[in-house]
Amino acid sequence: MIALAAGGPVIPTFGGGGSSFTCERANRLFCSSWLSRNWGPVLWPALRQHIVLTLIAVTIGFVISTTLALIAYRRRWLERPVLIITSILYTIPSLALFELLEPVPGLGLSRTTAEVALVSYTLLIMFRNTLTGLREVPDEVRDAAAGMGMGPLRSLLRVELPLAVPAIIAGVRIATVTVISLATVASLIDNEGLGVPILTAISNEVFKTELIAAGALAVGLALTADGLLVIIQRLLTPWTRAA
């Protein structure tokens, strides 16, 4: 289960190597020489895998939770069971969930296992935000849409969903940063993403440069994703800017 350092040699062995590895051998706080040597072979691939993992999980989670929210919007009784199940999934600590999924037939140590767990953490957040956003559309607006001759489907697509966009995007924001955070732990299962260099550095005599570089990349990725989603929301809802 612990698939450490399968990505190949990352640090020149402490103690060995020429004089160009002095900083690494001393394990100083941050060796920029290591960074420039390992950006291409180690950090960039990990970052790219992390982004792909996150995009897949958020997309699948968005489809599932939006579908559930739309059904629960029409059939109220569905809200409570969905909330209870997704809350329990959300409460289970990530390390435990990854391990519990691993022996399930057909999952194992794979990207699928990681994605199943990551998706399960997005459901509560996006389901609740989408449903709340739809419910908060004022009744008068709904009545006005009906009065203009819109059927339930057209009213949903043209009026109610657009008005719920800020709440929906707020959910996508939380879900995205949550997945970016948990995908570092998922490295235990699928051996990809920014968790790999972190775990490698720990098992490699706590190599500081790599810990700081990979950690900072994970934090930076989360902040960047959050910022991008704020911009997307502004673009999608020009009417909220007037206020």
């Binding site: 940063v177 955070s181 920014l194 550095a201 950690g215 934090v219 989360a222 902040l223």
Partner: peptide, 12 residues
């Protein structure tokens, strides 16, 4: 805060 990955915080 929501953007801080816990493993990254621990690692740093």
């Amino acid at each position: 805060w929501r953007a801080l990955p816990s493993l990254a915080v621990l690692a740093i």
